[in-house]
Design a protein around this nucleic acid. Structure first.
Lengths: 229, 229
DNA sequence: ACAAAAGTGTTGGATTTACACCCATGA
DNA sequence: TCATGGGTGTAAATCCAACACTTTTGT
């Protein structure tokens, strides 16, 4: 049952990677940032979430942030660890264990001037219109979706899908997009207000022909756990 | 900024490990199974959660189960992944990335006849009376505690801390131990019954001089998400 | 008959849902 | 003045928390 004592080298069999499911709401659709895989790869012409290998001096978190920056020009983004995928054959090229993350943003944080090493192209896809995906990235995205859709109900992470100051309708829309169901705006306002997660900035948002809307912001950037919906 | 292309060998720098926080309620106290670290180790005489290295043919899950079996004689236990700890210096001997798990049981599953390679001794410690811990295992246990204490409120995992058939008082006691607060038994019964997670087995539990109690069991071994408390 | 835990209902207060109209603005 | 989204209150229904006594058994 037990083989002779393995050497340290025998145990360094795996390559560590990280994959980041980056979410953003675009035109009322929850979307994910994907990169088109290089033509030379086994997964040529398929799409993958942003990610790459972890290097010796980096933690998984640091590696995830570096790949976001180098391959998609994204920095300063909310990010949390999701799950570690370690199936033996999840990468046909060899043993790769991937620590998956979820990231949230409200704008397109891709800057065009950065080195976009790694992908032929990056593009946002609505989560219900995903292209063919490389590796086990369908599973990783599904895991991220579940996490996000649950966590929005009992934490203040909605803020990371919104600008710093936002109107109540914008906030309500985030909840409607993620839960897939509409809410009565008076009841929604009451519930959210009762949590004390928001403060009125005193400012207003004017847009076109309608009545200006009050702008709110979240009181804390830290994750706060409290029943919301 | 970017170094010349690293070779595959450069990327296989890390040893992969897994650590399992195994919980059990003993005499009204939530406890964790720890192993005393071998005298030759840097962490000699400290205690660690059950774990060890992942070998090339195993997923993290499989490795976790194997270590539980080989080092503590534990098999067939509920287990779920917690988090991956990848701090560069979490193990002074070198770069070790650990995929942490939480396991739950209701009995002492350690069989004495198995090969207890790995620890001088294994022992259950109440979570608020932990001995000095090796590595970052304090952090890993803390993470497991948070997960367990939250998840008991909205899933049926309490079942894994109980025998197959149990009385209502036993169930209530699990909740009281984990939440740290007492509950009115009439209200508790109403809430739990409303979830439809339990079925009455029709059997009764006799113990000593008191009135026999009806035995219940959970309707599903699968994790079900539903508001309980 | 008593000790010990099992089992059971009701009520008042709090929370939640459902629902419709006026407001402020720019064109 | 009109079109557009912004903003507000109330009543009925539901849910939840608080609360104490009777039952069953073995000794």
């Amino acid at each position: 049952m037990k083989s002779p004592k393995p050497t340290l080298e025998d145990l360094r069999f795996a390559v560590l990677a990280t994959d980041v499911v980056c979410f953003r709401i675009i035109e009322g659709k929850l979307s994910v940032l994907l990169g088109k895989v290089d033509a030379k790869s086994v997964f040529a012409s398929k799409w993958a979430v942003i990610g790459g290998l972890i290097s010796p001096k980096d933690t998984a978190d640091e590696a995830a942030r570096k790949h976001l920056k180098n391959k998609a020009g994204i920095s300063d983004i909310y990010m949390e660890q999701l799950y570690t995928f370690s199936n033996v054959d999840r990468d046909p090229r060899g043993r790769v264990v991937s620590v998956a993350y979820m990231a949230l943003t409200n704008i397109d944080p891709r800057s065009t001037d950065t080195n976009k090493a790694g992908y032929v192209e990056t593009k946002w896809f609505p989560v219900d219109e995903l292209p063919p995906l490389a590796y086990d990235h369908d599973e990783i995205i599904a895991y991220g979706l579940v996490r996000l859709r649950n966590k929005i109900r009992y934490t203040n992470i909605a803020q990371f899908l919104l600008p710093d100051r936002f109107t109540f309708s914008q906030l309500q829309s985030v909840y409607e997009v993620l839960t897939g169901e509409g809410v009565d705006k008076r009841n929604f306002r009451k519930k959210v207000m009762a949590t004390n997660l928001l403060k009125d900035t005193g400012e207003v948002h004017k847009e076109g022909i309608m009545r200006p809307a009050a702008l709110y912001s979240f009181t804390s950037k830290k994750i706060i756990i409290t029943e919301i919906l």
